[in-house]
Design a protein around this nucleic acid. Structure first.
Length: 582
DNA sequence: GCCGTTTTCGGCCCGACTGTTTTCAGTCG
Protein backbone atom coordinates (compact mmCIF):
# COMPACT_ATOMS: atom_id res chain seq x y z
CA UNK A 1 0.00 0.00 0.00
CA UNK A 2 1.33 3.39 -0.95
CA UNK A 3 0.41 6.98 -0.27
CA UNK A 4 -0.57 7.29 -3.93
CA UNK A 5 -3.02 4.37 -3.70
CA UNK A 6 -4.69 5.86 -0.65
CA UNK A 7 -5.07 9.24 -2.34
CA UNK A 8 -6.19 7.81 -5.69
CA UNK A 9 -8.87 5.75 -3.99
CA UNK A 10 -10.27 8.87 -2.32
CA UNK A 11 -10.10 10.71 -5.66
CA UNK A 12 -11.97 7.87 -7.38
CA UNK A 13 -14.62 7.92 -4.68
CA UNK A 14 -15.06 11.66 -5.24
CA UNK A 15 -15.61 11.08 -8.98
CA UNK A 16 -18.09 8.28 -8.36
CA UNK A 17 -20.00 10.37 -5.85
CA UNK A 18 -20.16 13.14 -8.43
CA UNK A 19 -21.72 10.73 -10.91
CA UNK A 20 -24.29 9.85 -8.30
CA UNK A 21 -25.07 13.54 -7.79
CA UNK A 22 -24.02 13.44 -4.15
CA UNK A 23 -23.74 16.47 -1.90
CA UNK A 24 -20.91 18.55 -3.41
CA UNK A 25 -19.45 19.27 0.01
CA UNK A 26 -19.12 15.59 0.73
CA UNK A 27 -17.34 15.22 -2.60
CA UNK A 28 -15.03 18.06 -1.70
CA UNK A 29 -14.29 16.40 1.62
CA UNK A 30 -12.98 13.32 -0.25
CA UNK A 31 -10.89 15.52 -2.55
CA UNK A 32 -9.49 17.41 0.41
CA UNK A 33 -8.77 14.07 2.03
CA UNK A 34 -6.83 12.89 -1.02
CA UNK A 35 -4.86 16.12 -1.08
CA UNK A 36 -4.15 15.86 2.63
CA UNK A 37 -2.86 12.31 2.19
CA UNK A 38 -0.55 13.38 -0.67
CA UNK A 39 0.83 16.37 1.18
CA UNK A 40 1.14 14.84 4.62
CA UNK A 41 4.69 15.37 5.88
CA UNK A 42 5.39 11.95 7.27
CA UNK A 43 4.60 8.29 6.83
CA UNK A 44 0.87 8.49 6.25
CA UNK A 45 0.59 4.83 5.24
CA UNK A 46 1.92 3.57 8.56
CA UNK A 47 -0.22 6.08 10.41
CA UNK A 48 -3.28 4.76 8.55
CA UNK A 49 -2.34 1.15 9.20
CA UNK A 50 -1.93 1.85 12.90
CA UNK A 51 -5.19 3.82 12.99
CA UNK A 52 -3.22 6.87 14.08
CA UNK A 53 -4.83 9.57 11.94
CA UNK A 54 -6.68 11.47 14.61
CA UNK A 55 -6.09 15.21 14.60
CA UNK A 56 -5.00 15.49 10.95
CA UNK A 57 -6.96 18.41 9.52
CA UNK A 58 -9.22 17.35 6.66
CA UNK A 59 -9.44 13.71 7.74
CA UNK A 60 -12.40 13.18 10.03
CA UNK A 61 -13.90 10.07 11.54
CA UNK A 62 -15.26 8.62 8.30
CA UNK A 63 -12.04 9.05 6.32
CA UNK A 64 -9.93 7.78 9.20
CA UNK A 65 -11.91 4.57 9.25
CA UNK A 66 -11.78 4.18 5.46
CA UNK A 67 -8.04 4.84 5.23
CA UNK A 68 -7.41 2.41 8.06
CA UNK A 69 -9.41 -0.30 6.32
CA UNK A 70 -7.59 0.36 3.05
CA UNK A 71 -4.13 0.34 4.63
CA UNK A 72 -4.67 -2.85 6.60
CA UNK A 73 -6.67 -4.98 4.13
CA UNK A 74 -5.69 -3.38 0.82
CA UNK A 75 -9.39 -3.05 0.06
CA UNK A 76 -12.28 -0.78 0.88
CA UNK A 77 -15.77 -2.20 0.83
CA UNK A 78 -17.44 1.19 0.45
CA UNK A 79 -15.30 1.84 -2.64
CA UNK A 80 -15.84 -1.61 -4.17
CA UNK A 81 -19.61 -1.23 -3.93
CA UNK A 82 -19.49 2.23 -5.44
CA UNK A 83 -17.33 1.04 -8.31
CA UNK A 84 -19.71 -1.80 -9.08
CA UNK A 85 -22.41 0.76 -9.90
CA UNK A 86 -20.57 2.20 -12.90
CA UNK A 87 -18.32 0.79 -15.62
CA UNK A 88 -14.65 1.69 -15.20
CA UNK A 89 -14.55 3.25 -18.67
CA UNK A 90 -16.39 6.27 -17.32
CA UNK A 91 -13.22 7.39 -15.56
CA UNK A 92 -11.45 8.26 -18.81
CA UNK A 93 -14.37 10.45 -19.86
CA UNK A 94 -13.54 12.84 -17.03
CA UNK A 95 -10.28 13.66 -18.81
CA UNK A 96 -12.16 15.24 -21.71
CA UNK A 97 -12.41 18.99 -21.47
CA UNK A 98 -16.05 20.09 -21.36
CA UNK A 99 -17.31 16.85 -19.89
CA UNK A 100 -18.24 16.84 -16.22
CA UNK A 101 -20.24 14.50 -14.02
CA UNK A 102 -23.68 15.61 -15.21
CA UNK A 103 -22.96 15.23 -18.89
CA UNK A 104 -21.13 11.94 -18.40
CA UNK A 105 -24.06 10.58 -16.39
CA UNK A 106 -26.51 11.74 -19.06
CA UNK A 107 -24.45 10.09 -21.80
CA UNK A 108 -24.23 6.88 -19.81
CA UNK A 109 -27.88 6.75 -18.76
CA UNK A 110 -29.41 7.58 -22.14
CA UNK A 111 -26.88 6.23 -24.63
CA UNK A 112 -24.89 3.73 -22.59
CA UNK A 113 -21.63 5.58 -23.24
CA UNK A 114 -18.98 3.79 -21.18
CA UNK A 115 -15.77 4.49 -23.07
CA UNK A 116 -14.02 7.13 -25.16
CA UNK A 117 -14.32 4.93 -28.24
CA UNK A 118 -18.09 4.63 -27.91
CA UNK A 119 -18.44 8.33 -27.21
CA UNK A 120 -16.54 9.11 -30.39
CA UNK A 121 -18.81 6.82 -32.46
CA UNK A 122 -21.99 8.36 -31.08
CA UNK A 123 -20.70 11.90 -31.68
CA UNK A 124 -20.09 10.99 -35.31
CA UNK A 125 -23.46 9.29 -35.70
CA UNK A 126 -25.30 12.37 -34.43
CA UNK A 127 -26.88 10.63 -31.46
CA UNK A 128 -25.01 12.80 -28.94
CA UNK A 129 -26.19 15.99 -30.65
CA UNK A 130 -29.78 14.77 -30.45
CA UNK A 131 -29.63 14.24 -26.71
CA UNK A 132 -31.53 16.74 -24.53
CA UNK A 133 -29.19 19.39 -23.20
CA UNK A 134 -26.61 18.56 -25.86
CA UNK A 135 -26.41 19.86 -29.41
CA UNK A 136 -24.38 19.92 -32.59
CA UNK A 137 -21.81 22.28 -31.14
CA UNK A 138 -21.36 20.15 -28.03
CA UNK A 139 -20.74 17.02 -30.09
CA UNK A 140 -18.15 18.86 -32.16
CA UNK A 141 -16.41 20.18 -29.04
CA UNK A 142 -16.28 16.70 -27.56
CA UNK A 143 -14.67 15.32 -30.72
CA UNK A 144 -12.13 18.13 -30.71
CA UNK A 145 -11.32 17.51 -27.06
CA UNK A 146 -10.90 13.76 -27.64
CA UNK A 147 -8.58 14.46 -30.57
CA UNK A 148 -6.62 16.89 -28.44
CA UNK A 149 -6.17 14.35 -25.66
CA UNK A 150 -5.03 11.75 -28.17
CA UNK A 151 -2.30 13.96 -29.57
CA UNK A 152 -1.11 16.03 -26.63
CA UNK A 153 0.28 15.53 -23.20
CA UNK A 154 -1.87 16.69 -20.33
CA UNK A 155 1.02 18.11 -18.35
CA UNK A 156 4.26 19.87 -19.13
CA UNK A 157 7.51 20.09 -17.24
CA UNK A 158 8.11 23.51 -15.76
CA UNK A 159 11.42 23.66 -17.63
CA UNK A 160 9.73 23.03 -20.97
CA UNK A 161 7.33 25.96 -20.74
CA UNK A 162 9.63 28.69 -19.46
CA UNK A 163 10.65 29.94 -22.90
CA UNK A 164 7.17 30.39 -24.46
CA UNK A 165 5.73 31.69 -21.20
CA UNK A 166 8.37 34.36 -20.70
CA UNK A 167 8.10 35.35 -24.36
CA UNK A 168 4.33 35.83 -24.15
CA UNK A 169 4.64 37.65 -20.84
CA UNK A 170 7.20 40.03 -22.31
CA UNK A 171 5.03 40.79 -25.32
CA UNK A 172 2.00 41.42 -23.08
CA UNK A 173 4.05 43.87 -21.04
CA UNK A 174 5.06 45.67 -24.22
CA UNK A 175 1.47 46.39 -25.22
CA UNK A 176 0.62 50.08 -24.65
CA UNK A 177 -2.68 49.20 -22.95
CA UNK A 178 -0.97 46.88 -20.46
CA UNK A 179 -0.50 48.45 -17.03
CA UNK A 180 0.80 45.35 -15.26
CA UNK A 181 1.20 41.72 -16.29
CA UNK A 182 2.17 38.56 -14.44
CA UNK A 183 2.08 34.83 -14.88
CA UNK A 184 -0.09 33.31 -12.16
CA UNK A 185 -1.21 29.72 -11.55
CA UNK A 186 0.98 26.69 -10.97
CA UNK A 187 3.83 28.25 -12.96
CA UNK A 188 4.10 31.03 -10.39
CA UNK A 189 3.79 28.51 -7.58
CA UNK A 190 6.71 26.58 -9.10
CA UNK A 191 4.94 23.29 -9.49
CA UNK A 192 7.33 20.80 -11.12
CA UNK A 193 4.79 20.20 -13.89
CA UNK A 194 1.97 22.42 -15.10
CA UNK A 195 -1.29 21.69 -16.88
CA UNK A 196 -1.82 25.17 -18.27
CA UNK A 197 -0.43 28.66 -17.85
CA UNK A 198 -2.43 31.60 -16.50
CA UNK A 199 -1.59 35.12 -17.57
CA UNK A 200 -3.05 38.13 -15.81
CA UNK A 201 -3.07 41.67 -17.16
CA UNK A 202 -4.19 44.95 -15.61
CA UNK A 203 -5.61 47.16 -18.33
CA UNK A 204 -8.18 49.79 -19.13
CA UNK A 205 -8.77 48.20 -22.51
CA UNK A 206 -9.46 44.50 -21.99
CA UNK A 207 -10.92 43.89 -25.45
CA UNK A 208 -7.78 45.16 -27.13
CA UNK A 209 -5.49 43.04 -24.90
CA UNK A 210 -7.59 39.91 -25.47
CA UNK A 211 -7.37 40.37 -29.25
CA UNK A 212 -3.63 40.94 -28.99
CA UNK A 213 -3.21 37.80 -26.89
CA UNK A 214 -5.19 35.42 -29.12
CA UNK A 215 -3.32 36.65 -32.19
CA UNK A 216 0.15 36.11 -30.68
CA UNK A 217 2.44 34.23 -33.07
CA UNK A 218 2.80 31.28 -30.70
CA UNK A 219 -0.99 30.73 -30.51
CA UNK A 220 -2.31 27.99 -32.81
CA UNK A 221 -5.97 27.80 -31.80
CA UNK A 222 -8.46 29.69 -29.69
CA UNK A 223 -10.52 27.64 -27.24
CA UNK A 224 -12.65 30.45 -25.83
CA UNK A 225 -12.72 34.21 -26.04
CA UNK A 226 -14.87 36.66 -24.10
CA UNK A 227 -14.62 40.33 -23.11
CA UNK A 228 -12.30 39.67 -20.11
CA UNK A 229 -10.99 36.16 -20.59
CA UNK A 230 -9.51 34.00 -23.33
CA UNK A 231 -8.05 30.49 -23.58
CA UNK A 232 -5.72 29.33 -26.33
CA UNK A 233 -3.48 26.43 -27.29
CA UNK A 234 0.14 26.87 -28.28
CA UNK A 235 1.77 24.68 -30.93
CA UNK A 236 2.93 22.03 -28.45
CA UNK A 237 -0.57 21.72 -26.97
CA UNK A 238 0.09 23.90 -23.95
CA UNK A 239 -3.09 25.70 -22.90
CA UNK A 240 -2.73 29.35 -21.93
CA UNK A 241 -5.42 31.43 -20.28
CA UNK A 242 -5.52 35.19 -20.06
CA UNK A 243 -7.60 37.26 -17.69
CA UNK A 244 -7.86 41.02 -17.98
CA UNK A 245 -8.80 43.08 -14.93
CA UNK A 246 -8.62 46.72 -13.89
CA UNK A 247 -5.52 47.98 -12.13
CA UNK A 248 -7.43 48.29 -8.85
CA UNK A 249 -8.42 44.63 -9.08
CA UNK A 250 -4.98 43.35 -10.02
CA UNK A 251 -3.69 42.38 -6.56
CA UNK A 252 -6.77 40.35 -5.62
CA UNK A 253 -6.88 38.81 -9.08
CA UNK A 254 -3.21 37.82 -8.91
CA UNK A 255 -3.78 36.20 -5.53
CA UNK A 256 -6.85 34.43 -6.85
CA UNK A 257 -5.34 33.12 -10.08
CA UNK A 258 -2.10 32.07 -8.44
CA UNK A 259 -4.07 29.61 -6.32
CA UNK A 260 -3.79 26.87 -5.43
CA UNK A 261 -7.48 26.17 -5.36
CA UNK A 262 -7.07 24.71 -1.88
CA UNK A 263 -5.09 27.72 -0.71
CA UNK A 264 -7.82 30.00 -2.04
CA UNK A 265 -10.50 28.11 -0.18
CA UNK A 266 -8.50 28.55 3.01
CA UNK A 267 -7.99 32.26 2.31
CA UNK A 268 -11.68 32.78 1.68
CA UNK A 269 -12.56 30.95 4.83
CA UNK A 270 -10.15 33.21 6.71
CA UNK A 271 -11.66 36.32 5.08
CA UNK A 272 -15.15 35.19 6.09
CA UNK A 273 -14.03 34.74 9.69
CA UNK A 274 -12.75 38.34 9.56
CA UNK A 275 -16.12 39.55 8.24
CA UNK A 276 -15.16 39.84 4.57
CA UNK A 277 -15.84 38.00 1.38
CA UNK A 278 -12.96 37.55 -1.05
CA UNK A 279 -13.26 37.05 -4.78
CA UNK A 280 -10.94 37.50 -7.73
CA UNK A 281 -11.57 41.26 -7.82
CA UNK A 282 -11.78 42.54 -4.31
CA UNK A 283 -12.20 42.03 -0.62
CA UNK A 284 -15.62 43.31 0.47
CA UNK A 285 -17.52 43.40 3.77
CA UNK A 286 -19.61 40.30 4.19
CA UNK A 287 -23.30 40.83 3.60
CA UNK A 288 -24.96 41.83 6.84
CA UNK A 289 -21.68 42.45 8.61
CA UNK A 290 -20.62 45.84 9.92
CA UNK A 291 -17.01 45.44 8.77
CA UNK A 292 -15.58 48.65 7.34
CA UNK A 293 -14.85 48.86 3.62
CA UNK A 294 -11.52 47.34 2.64
CA UNK A 295 -9.04 49.58 0.81
CA UNK A 296 -7.87 49.02 -2.75
CA UNK A 297 -4.82 46.76 -2.46
CA UNK A 298 -1.76 47.70 -4.46
CA UNK A 299 -0.16 44.33 -3.88
CA UNK A 300 -0.79 40.86 -2.54
CA UNK A 301 1.35 41.73 0.46
CA UNK A 302 -1.12 44.48 1.40
CA UNK A 303 -4.04 42.08 1.07
CA UNK A 304 -2.29 39.52 3.26
CA UNK A 305 -1.44 42.15 5.86
CA UNK A 306 -5.03 43.40 5.95
CA UNK A 307 -6.16 39.85 6.75
CA UNK A 308 -3.64 39.67 9.57
CA UNK A 309 -1.11 37.56 7.69
CA UNK A 310 2.55 37.86 6.85
CA UNK A 311 3.17 37.81 3.10
CA UNK A 312 2.88 34.27 1.78
CA UNK A 313 5.28 33.57 -1.09
CA UNK A 314 3.57 31.98 -4.13
CA UNK A 315 5.61 28.77 -3.85
CA UNK A 316 4.06 28.08 -0.43
CA UNK A 317 0.44 28.42 -1.50
CA UNK A 318 -0.58 24.77 -1.44
CA UNK A 319 -2.65 24.85 1.75
CA UNK A 320 -0.08 22.86 3.69
CA UNK A 321 -0.12 25.09 6.73
CA UNK A 322 1.11 28.33 5.17
CA UNK A 323 -2.02 30.32 6.07
CA UNK A 324 -1.84 29.29 9.73
CA UNK A 325 1.91 29.94 9.84
CA UNK A 326 1.41 33.38 8.25
CA UNK A 327 -1.18 34.23 10.90
CA UNK A 328 1.25 33.27 13.65
CA UNK A 329 4.21 35.05 12.10
CA UNK A 330 5.86 31.65 11.77
CA UNK A 331 6.61 31.48 8.04
CA UNK A 332 10.21 30.61 7.22
CA UNK A 333 12.42 33.16 5.47
CA UNK A 334 12.80 31.29 2.21
CA UNK A 335 16.09 30.77 0.42
CA UNK A 336 16.88 32.92 -2.62
CA UNK A 337 19.05 32.31 -5.65
CA UNK A 338 21.46 35.01 -4.46
CA UNK A 339 22.16 33.00 -1.31
CA UNK A 340 23.97 30.24 -3.21
CA UNK A 341 27.76 30.38 -2.93
CA UNK A 342 28.58 27.20 -4.83
CA UNK A 343 27.13 23.91 -5.96
CA UNK A 344 27.98 20.23 -6.29
CA UNK A 345 27.26 17.43 -8.73
CA UNK A 346 28.45 18.69 -12.10
CA UNK A 347 29.81 16.71 -15.03
CA UNK A 348 32.57 17.33 -17.55
CA UNK A 349 33.78 15.86 -20.82
CA UNK A 350 35.55 13.22 -18.73
CA UNK A 351 32.22 11.34 -18.48
CA UNK A 352 29.05 12.46 -20.28
CA UNK A 353 29.33 16.25 -19.95
CA UNK A 354 29.98 18.65 -22.82
CA UNK A 355 32.45 21.08 -21.24
CA UNK A 356 35.90 20.85 -19.71
CA UNK A 357 36.84 21.44 -16.09
CA UNK A 358 38.16 24.89 -16.97
CA UNK A 359 35.01 25.85 -18.89
CA UNK A 360 32.73 24.67 -16.10
CA UNK A 361 34.79 26.58 -13.54
CA UNK A 362 34.67 29.76 -15.64
CA UNK A 363 30.89 29.45 -16.00
CA UNK A 364 30.52 28.95 -12.25
CA UNK A 365 32.53 32.11 -11.61
CA UNK A 366 30.29 33.99 -14.04
CA UNK A 367 27.34 32.86 -11.90
CA UNK A 368 29.09 34.47 -8.92
CA UNK A 369 29.88 31.12 -7.29
CA UNK A 370 32.94 30.63 -5.08
CA UNK A 371 33.22 26.90 -5.60
CA UNK A 372 32.06 24.18 -7.95
CA UNK A 373 31.90 20.51 -7.13
CA UNK A 374 32.82 18.14 -9.95
CA UNK A 375 31.15 14.74 -9.80
CA UNK A 376 31.60 12.75 -12.97
CA UNK A 377 30.17 9.26 -13.25
CA UNK A 378 31.97 6.24 -11.84
CA UNK A 379 33.15 3.20 -13.81
CA UNK A 380 29.93 1.14 -13.57
CA UNK A 381 28.04 3.83 -15.48
CA UNK A 382 29.84 2.77 -18.65
CA UNK A 383 26.92 4.09 -20.72
CA UNK A 384 27.90 7.54 -19.44
CA UNK A 385 31.64 6.95 -19.95
CA UNK A 386 32.16 6.66 -16.20
CA UNK A 387 35.69 7.17 -14.88
CA UNK A 388 37.74 4.25 -13.60
CA UNK A 389 40.22 4.61 -10.73
CA UNK A 390 43.07 5.73 -12.98
CA UNK A 391 41.09 8.40 -14.83
CA UNK A 392 39.52 9.68 -11.61
CA UNK A 393 42.98 10.06 -10.00
CA UNK A 394 44.11 11.96 -13.09
CA UNK A 395 41.08 14.22 -12.78
CA UNK A 396 41.79 14.85 -9.10
CA UNK A 397 45.33 15.89 -10.03
CA UNK A 398 44.01 18.16 -12.79
CA UNK A 399 41.61 19.82 -10.34
CA UNK A 400 44.40 20.41 -7.82
CA UNK A 401 46.47 21.99 -10.60
CA UNK A 402 43.62 24.30 -11.66
CA UNK A 403 43.09 25.29 -8.03
CA UNK A 404 46.77 26.23 -7.70
CA UNK A 405 46.27 28.43 -10.74
CA UNK A 406 43.25 30.23 -9.18
CA UNK A 407 45.29 30.66 -6.03
CA UNK A 408 48.25 32.21 -7.78
CA UNK A 409 45.93 34.56 -9.72
CA UNK A 410 44.35 35.61 -6.44
CA UNK A 411 40.94 34.37 -7.63
CA UNK A 412 38.65 33.40 -4.79
CA UNK A 413 37.41 30.20 -6.36
CA UNK A 414 37.90 26.48 -5.83
CA UNK A 415 36.96 23.32 -7.65
CA UNK A 416 36.09 20.42 -5.38
CA UNK A 417 37.12 16.99 -6.56
CA UNK A 418 34.25 14.60 -6.18
CA UNK A 419 32.56 11.71 -7.89
CA UNK A 420 29.01 10.65 -8.58
CA UNK A 421 29.63 7.14 -7.37
CA UNK A 422 27.21 4.47 -8.45
CA UNK A 423 25.35 2.75 -5.66
CA UNK A 424 25.64 -0.85 -6.74
CA UNK A 425 22.82 -3.34 -6.49
CA UNK A 426 23.80 -4.48 -3.01
CA UNK A 427 24.22 -0.93 -1.68
CA UNK A 428 28.01 -0.94 -1.86
CA UNK A 429 29.87 1.78 -3.74
CA UNK A 430 31.65 1.67 -7.08
CA UNK A 431 35.05 2.72 -5.64
CA UNK A 432 36.97 1.46 -2.62
CA UNK A 433 37.34 3.55 0.55
CA UNK A 434 40.92 4.48 -0.20
CA UNK A 435 40.03 6.25 -3.45
CA UNK A 436 36.90 7.79 -1.93
CA UNK A 437 39.15 9.14 0.82
CA UNK A 438 41.22 11.02 -1.76
CA UNK A 439 38.15 12.97 -2.89
CA UNK A 440 36.90 16.21 -1.39
CA UNK A 441 33.36 14.89 -1.26
CA UNK A 442 31.19 12.09 -2.64
CA UNK A 443 27.74 12.04 -4.27
CA UNK A 444 26.18 8.57 -4.25
CA UNK A 445 23.45 7.80 -6.81
CA UNK A 446 21.53 4.87 -8.23
CA UNK A 447 21.74 4.44 -12.01
CA UNK A 448 20.76 0.83 -12.58
CA UNK A 449 18.51 -1.93 -11.24
CA UNK A 450 15.78 0.61 -10.56
CA UNK A 451 12.92 -1.86 -10.50
CA UNK A 452 13.87 -3.84 -7.41
CA UNK A 453 11.23 -4.28 -4.68
CA UNK A 454 10.79 -1.45 -2.20
CA UNK A 455 12.37 -3.23 0.75
CA UNK A 456 15.50 -4.09 -1.23
CA UNK A 457 15.84 -0.61 -2.72
CA UNK A 458 15.38 0.95 0.71
CA UNK A 459 18.08 -1.28 2.22
CA UNK A 460 20.34 -0.50 -0.73
CA UNK A 461 20.00 3.26 -0.25
CA UNK A 462 20.32 3.10 3.53
CA UNK A 463 23.55 1.11 3.20
CA UNK A 464 24.92 3.74 0.84
CA UNK A 465 23.94 6.83 2.82
CA UNK A 466 25.37 5.41 6.05
CA UNK A 467 28.74 4.78 4.37
CA UNK A 468 31.16 7.16 6.14
CA UNK A 469 32.65 8.51 2.90
CA UNK A 470 29.32 9.52 1.36
CA UNK A 471 28.65 13.25 1.61
CA UNK A 472 25.32 13.38 -0.16
CA UNK A 473 22.68 11.27 -1.83
CA UNK A 474 22.01 12.15 -5.48
CA UNK A 475 18.56 12.22 -7.16
CA UNK A 476 16.93 10.14 -4.46
CA UNK A 477 14.04 8.55 -6.36
CA UNK A 478 15.42 8.48 -9.91
CA UNK A 479 12.21 9.87 -11.32
CA UNK A 480 12.07 11.52 -14.73
CA UNK A 481 9.05 13.78 -14.68
CA UNK A 482 6.25 12.66 -17.01
CA UNK A 483 8.46 9.83 -18.23
CA UNK A 484 9.67 7.52 -15.50
CA UNK A 485 8.12 6.94 -12.09
CA UNK A 486 10.24 7.19 -8.97
CA UNK A 487 11.58 3.83 -7.91
CA UNK A 488 9.83 2.10 -5.07
CA UNK A 489 11.54 3.23 -1.90
CA UNK A 490 10.54 3.92 1.69
CA UNK A 491 11.35 7.63 1.74
CA UNK A 492 10.85 8.27 5.46
CA UNK A 493 13.25 5.41 6.25
CA UNK A 494 15.93 6.80 3.90
CA UNK A 495 15.42 10.32 5.28
CA UNK A 496 15.78 8.95 8.81
CA UNK A 497 19.01 7.17 7.86
CA UNK A 498 20.38 10.39 6.34
CA UNK A 499 19.42 12.28 9.49
CA UNK A 500 21.26 9.81 11.69
CA UNK A 501 24.41 9.66 9.58
CA UNK A 502 24.51 13.37 8.76
CA UNK A 503 24.25 12.65 5.04
CA UNK A 504 23.02 15.51 2.88
CA UNK A 505 20.15 14.93 0.44
CA UNK A 506 20.43 16.52 -2.97
CA UNK A 507 17.74 18.62 -4.56
CA UNK A 508 18.61 17.80 -8.14
CA UNK A 509 17.67 20.87 -10.21
CA UNK A 510 17.48 19.24 -13.59
CA UNK A 511 13.91 20.13 -14.69
CA UNK A 512 13.35 16.49 -15.65
CA UNK A 513 14.14 15.38 -12.11
CA UNK A 514 13.58 18.02 -9.39
CA UNK A 515 14.33 15.16 -7.03
CA UNK A 516 13.92 14.82 -4.00
CA UNK A 517 10.35 15.94 -4.40
CA UNK A 518 9.44 19.27 -2.75
CA UNK A 519 6.72 17.61 -0.68
CA UNK A 520 9.33 15.86 1.50
CA UNK A 521 11.67 18.68 2.39
CA UNK A 522 9.72 20.07 5.32
CA UNK A 523 9.74 16.61 6.87
CA UNK A 524 13.42 16.04 6.10
CA UNK A 525 14.44 19.35 7.64
CA UNK A 526 12.40 18.59 10.75
CA UNK A 527 14.41 15.37 11.03
CA UNK A 528 17.60 17.44 10.82
CA UNK A 529 18.62 16.65 7.23
CA UNK A 530 20.46 19.27 5.15
CA UNK A 531 19.87 19.95 1.47
CA UNK A 532 22.33 20.52 -1.38
CA UNK A 533 20.90 22.31 -4.42
CA UNK A 534 22.71 20.72 -7.36
CA UNK A 535 22.19 21.39 -11.07
CA UNK A 536 23.55 18.04 -12.28
CA UNK A 537 24.95 20.20 -15.09
CA UNK A 538 26.25 18.40 -18.15
CA UNK A 539 27.21 21.66 -19.86
CA UNK A 540 27.96 25.20 -18.73
CA UNK A 541 24.51 26.54 -19.64
CA UNK A 542 22.88 24.02 -17.31
CA UNK A 543 24.19 25.88 -14.29
CA UNK A 544 21.05 27.94 -14.94
CA UNK A 545 19.10 24.98 -13.58
CA UNK A 546 19.93 26.36 -10.14
CA UNK A 547 16.98 28.69 -10.71
CA UNK A 548 14.60 25.69 -10.78
CA UNK A 549 16.28 24.21 -7.74
CA UNK A 550 15.81 27.33 -5.68
CA UNK A 551 12.17 27.64 -6.73
CA UNK A 552 11.51 24.06 -5.66
CA UNK A 553 13.53 24.49 -2.46
CA UNK A 554 11.31 27.44 -1.59
CA UNK A 555 8.31 25.26 -2.30
CA UNK A 556 9.72 22.82 0.25
CA UNK A 557 9.87 25.64 2.86
CA UNK A 558 13.70 25.63 2.84
CA UNK A 559 15.66 28.51 4.32
CA UNK A 560 19.23 29.56 3.70
CA UNK A 561 20.29 27.65 6.80
CA UNK A 562 18.81 24.39 5.49
CA UNK A 563 20.93 24.40 2.32
CA UNK A 564 24.66 23.68 2.65
CA UNK A 565 25.71 25.36 -0.56
CA UNK A 566 24.78 28.74 0.89
CA UNK A 567 27.98 28.42 2.95
CA UNK A 568 30.82 30.56 1.65
CA UNK A 569 34.05 28.96 0.50
CA UNK A 570 35.82 29.06 3.86
CA UNK A 571 32.81 27.65 5.70
CA UNK A 572 32.38 24.96 3.07
CA UNK A 573 36.04 23.91 3.35
CA UNK A 574 35.49 23.57 7.06
CA UNK A 575 32.25 21.65 6.51
CA UNK A 576 34.07 19.19 4.24
CA UNK A 577 37.08 18.99 6.57
CA UNK A 578 39.42 20.33 3.90
CA UNK A 579 42.55 22.39 4.29
CA UNK A 580 42.15 25.81 2.72
CA UNK A 581 44.34 26.07 -0.36
CA UNK A 582 45.03 29.75 0.10
C1' DG B 1 -17.90 14.37 5.01
C1' DC B 2 -15.52 18.10 7.78
C1' DC B 3 -15.40 21.59 11.12
C1' DG B 4 -15.74 25.00 15.39
C1' DT B 5 -13.28 33.23 17.89
C1' DT B 6 -21.06 31.67 14.41
C1' DT B 7 -18.47 25.11 18.35
C1' DT B 8 -22.01 19.42 17.84
C1' DC B 9 -25.62 21.72 13.74
C1' DG B 10 -25.57 24.33 9.82
C1' DG B 11 -22.81 26.02 7.20
C1' DC B 12 -19.27 24.89 3.51
C1' DC B 13 -15.73 30.23 -2.27
C1' DC B 14 -17.12 32.46 -6.34
C1' DG B 15 -17.50 34.20 -11.10
C1' DA B 16 -16.75 33.71 -16.49
C1' DC B 17 -17.86 31.41 -20.57
C1' DT B 18 -20.46 28.19 -23.54
C1' DG B 19 -24.26 26.10 -25.51
C1' DT B 20 -28.80 25.26 -25.50
C1' DT B 21 -31.91 27.76 -24.23
C1' DT B 22 -35.50 32.20 -23.72
C1' DT B 23 -33.48 32.35 -18.09
C1' DC B 24 -30.12 28.74 -17.00
C1' DA B 25 -27.29 24.44 -16.22
C1' DG B 26 -22.88 22.66 -16.74
C1' DT B 27 -18.06 23.13 -16.66
C1' DC B 28 -13.83 25.18 -15.45
C1' DG B 29 -10.48 27.25 -12.72
Amino acid sequence: MTRETLAETLEDIALLLELKGENPFKIRAYRMGAETVMQFPGDIVTRAREDDLKGIKGIGDALQQKLHELATTGKLEFYEKLRAEFPTGLFELFRIQGLGPKKIKALYDSLGVDSLARLKDLCHSGEVAALAGFGKKTAEKILEAIAFREFNAERFRLGDVVAPVEEILTSLKEHPDCLRAEVAGSYRRAKETVHDVDFLVATGNAVEIIEYFVSHSRVTSVIAKGPTKASVYLADGLQCDLRAVSNAEFACALAYFTGSKEHNVAMRGLALSRGYTLNEYRLAPREGSDSPEAPVFESEAQLHRFLGLDYIAPELRENTGEVEAAAEGALPRLIELENLRGTFHNHTVASDGRNTLGEMAAAAMEHGLQYLGIADHSKSSFQANGLDEKRLREQIAEIRELNRGYQSEGTKFRLFAGSEVDILKDGSLDFDDELLGELDYVVASVHNAMTMPEAEMTARLIKAVTHPKVTMLGHLTGRLLLERDPYAVDLPAVIEACAESGTVIELNCNPWRLDMDWRWWKYAVERGVKCAINPDAHRTTQLDYLWFGVRLARKGWLTRADVINTLDLAAMEEYLNLEPIR
